[in-house]
Computed example of a mutant assay.
Amino acid sequence: MEKPWSTVRGWAIVGLLAACGAVNAQSGPPADAHERAALRAQVQADLASRAKRDPNLATLNLLLAQPETAIDLARAEVTIEAMIDPKVNQPATLRALDNLAQAIRARFPQGDATDNEVKIGLLLNSLQAAGPWNGNRPFRYDLDNPMGEDPKDKLLSTYLATRKGNCVSMPVLLVVLSQKVGIEATLVSAPAHVFARVRRDDGSWLNIEATSFGTVSDAHYQQDLAITPRAIQSGAYLRSLTKQQEILVMVDTLEQYYRHHRAPDDLLGLTLRVLTTDMTNVSGWLWRGEAYAALIDEKFLHKYGSVDAIPPELRDQYAVLHTNNIDMFRSAEALGWVEETAEHKADYLRSIQQVKAQQARTGR
Rank of each mutant, 00 (worst) to 15 (best):
N324D: 10
Q244M: 04
H344K: 12
A58L: 13
A33D: 15
L321W: 07
A70H: 10
L177Q: 13
V172W: 02
A37E: 15
P151H: 04
S49I: 04
A334T: 01
S217Q: 02
L16E: 09
F329H: 10
Q353V: 02
A37W: 05
L286F: 04
E2T: 15
I183A: 06
T253S: 14
K345Q: 14
P109N: 02
G21D: 05
I208K: 04
L286Q: 07
S217D: 03
C20D: 13
R40W: 09
K303N: 07
M1Q: 10
D308G: 08
I310E: 02
Y318T: 09
D112Q: 09
L301T: 14
T271A: 06
P171Y: 00
K180I: 07
Q179S: 07
E290Q: 14
R50E: 13
R200A: 08
A346W: 00
P138D: 03
S178T: 13
K303A: 14
K52R: 15
T79S: 10
W287N: 15
L295G: 02
H220M: 08
D85M: 11
L286W: 00
A92Y: 07
A346Y: 01
E313L: 07
H260G: 12
G131E: 02
E313R: 14
G148M: 04
D150R: 11
K356N: 04
I296E: 01
A294M: 05
K243V: 00
K180R: 15
K303M: 11
L314W: 06
T242W: 04
V176Y: 01
V176K: 05
S204A: 15
A130P: 04
A219G: 03
S178F: 10
S240N: 06
R262T: 09
V118H: 03
S217C: 01
L47S: 12
C20L: 12
Q222A: 13
L122G: 04
W5S: 05
P311K: 13
L62D: 12
V355K: 13
T162I: 11
L17Q: 05
A76V: 07
L156A: 13
A185N: 06
T59Y: 05
G269A: 15
Q233V: 12
A82D: 07
L122V: 11
G121K: 05
T362N: 14
G336M: 01
A291F: 01
Y159N: 03
Q42H: 09
V8W: 10
R36V: 03
L127I: 09
D266F: 08
Q179I: 08
R199G: 06
N325P: 00
A33Y: 08
L187Q: 05
N136P: 01
P229K: 03
T69Q: 11
A236C: 01
Q353G: 15
P171N: 06
A334E: 03
A342L: 06
L248K: 05
A18K: 08
L60N: 08
T280R: 06
Q317I: 03
G28L: 02
P30C: 08
I247W: 00
T158L: 09
A342I: 00
E77L: 01
T186R: 05
E298Q: 12
I227D: 01
Q353T: 02
T215K: 03
Q317S: 14
S189A: 14
F139R: 07
L143N: 04
L122S: 09
Y258I: 11
G10I: 06
I352A: 10
D297W: 02
V198E: 01
